[in-house]
Design a protein around this nucleic acid. Structure first.
Lengths: 253, 253
DNA sequence: CGCTGTTTTGAGCGTCCTCAAGAGTAGTGG
DNA sequence: CCACTACTCTTGAGGACGCTCAAAACAGCG
């Protein structure tokens, strides 16, 4: 388990059942990371109708699949997801890992059907946001509209960063960038920046980074030899974060 | 020059000066590819205020740069662009090539500043769409709002496709996918599907595909030897499009 | 405890990169 | 019109990085 520093951040242990429980964004402790960033408390009240229900997704299950009809976006409440796209000939590529407060399903807007699979990597729960409702409400709330656009744009910027990684970096640099990104996001959620538990396999990391699982494993081992990491299976301790940073900054040297 | 089949599609030859000429989307022959897809002619009339001016960008010049304040989106009217992101240590990655009817600048919404460079690869002209105006109008026109969301989502889906390419494909497959994508987009704009002129260097293609320019050149040569392409510098003729298709479908075999 | 899936590690190989030279093309100015 | 320069593209030879194939160690779970 990743150790929560802020005790009010939800952990997997409080994953709810799949009842359509009314959950107000106003009282959600993820509101500073999630869709309603920037909304005033009074706006938030009126937003209650938007997130009408939760859905829990057990580890290994799909939240949605490539080809599914698109109707809703999903905000991760607890747990951890991966998204992946597949090529015509069966290979697949992990396109991202999503944690609490992050949005899933944006790919579906383009043609009213999903273009990737979303799979829970641990027992998870999401808030279901009907896209029609979001469109309607964002016509009324300028702040919500703007925030939604920002989230989509941020996803585009993120994807461009991944392209840079896949197109230009070597194995060590890719893994370093991946780990730094993970720790930063965990830190923003109140977890330790130096100790983390990977929710995904070496193969999934490899798929995301454009590497084979053996290469990922070897690179972890090398980081351990160099004293940069302590690796015990999926339990990772970052001993020298600056070494990771140097890898991706001085990469050309 | 790519040979227009539909004579009403604009070519570079009619690139305008930089006067703030009033250009109505209603009378633009790109309207079926561009932002106002799906709007009725009467809606289009009311949209006139949105695209208030054009801007022409000579070959080699920047439309915007990483770090520039974000204020507007740009719809390519004529010409051809590349976008690229740079890493901390100076390497850069081409993240896309944009042609007539495609939107530039979506990356800027995330933090009110641009996160990539946009460079004209030939003398080009763009329609300037003030983002504030677009937000405002899309609150009024549901169709416009939805179309805009679709365009952002499509960009995300496209980026995921590029990740798949960069993460899983080998050099020949990457170049085949690139060429098929280009010819399809040119075809949608009324150009030949078999004959095209590349607007970018081997190095830029390589950067986009995560390859070195020598590898791109070698792969072009191999395609020529195999009778799949005819390559005369940047003048490309696709002799066997199905062979390209097979490369990316049967890739694993 | 045995089964299964994940991870580690080794050895050999292939694809693409690096370095380098030369040919082709475009733009500039005499 | 032709040299001159700068840039782009092609092609070759050698090497490096990551992949493939394979086996064994390890962890999780019924």
């Amino acid at each position: 388990m990743n150790v929560p520093i802020h005790p009010d951040v939800p952990t997997s242990s409080c994953a709810g059942a799949l009842e359509p429980l009314k959950v107000a964004c106003a009282s959600c402790n993820l509101r500073e990371l999630c869709l309603p960033v920037g909304l005033t408390p009074t706006d938030l009240q009126r937003l209650d109708g938007l997130v009408e229900k939760r859905r829990s997704v057990p580890r290994g299950e799909h939240l949605f699949r490539n080809g599914d009809r698109f109707e809703a976006l999903y905000a991760v409440r607890t747990g951890f997801f991966k998204t992946c796209v597949g090529s015509e000939d069966g290979r697949d590529q992990v396109t991202g890992f999503q944690m609490a407060g992050e949005l899933l399903g944006l790919d579906g807007i383009s043609s009213d059907q999903h273009h990737c699979d979303a799979v829970a990597l641990e027992d998870s729960s999401v808030c279901v946001i009907q896209y029609r409702d979001l469109e309607e409400l964002s016509r009324e709330f300028t702040v919500l509209q703007h925030q939604f656009h920002k989230i989509m744009s941020r996803e585009i910027v993120r994807d461009h960063g991944v392209m840079l990684l896949l197109g230009n970096m070597r194995a060590e640099e890719r893994l370093a960038a991946f780990l730094l990104n993970l720790t930063q996001r965990l830190q923003a959620r109140g977890f330790s920046a130096s100790s983390l538990v990977l929710r995904m396999t070496r193969e999934e990391i490899g798929s995301y980074l454009g590497l084979k699982l053996e290469t990922v494993s070897r690179t972890f081992s090398k980081f351990q030899e160099d004293g940069v990491l302590d690796v015990k299976q999926r339990q990772i301790t970052v001993l020298d974060p600056q070494a990771l940073q140097r890898l991706i900054s001085n990469a050309a040297c």
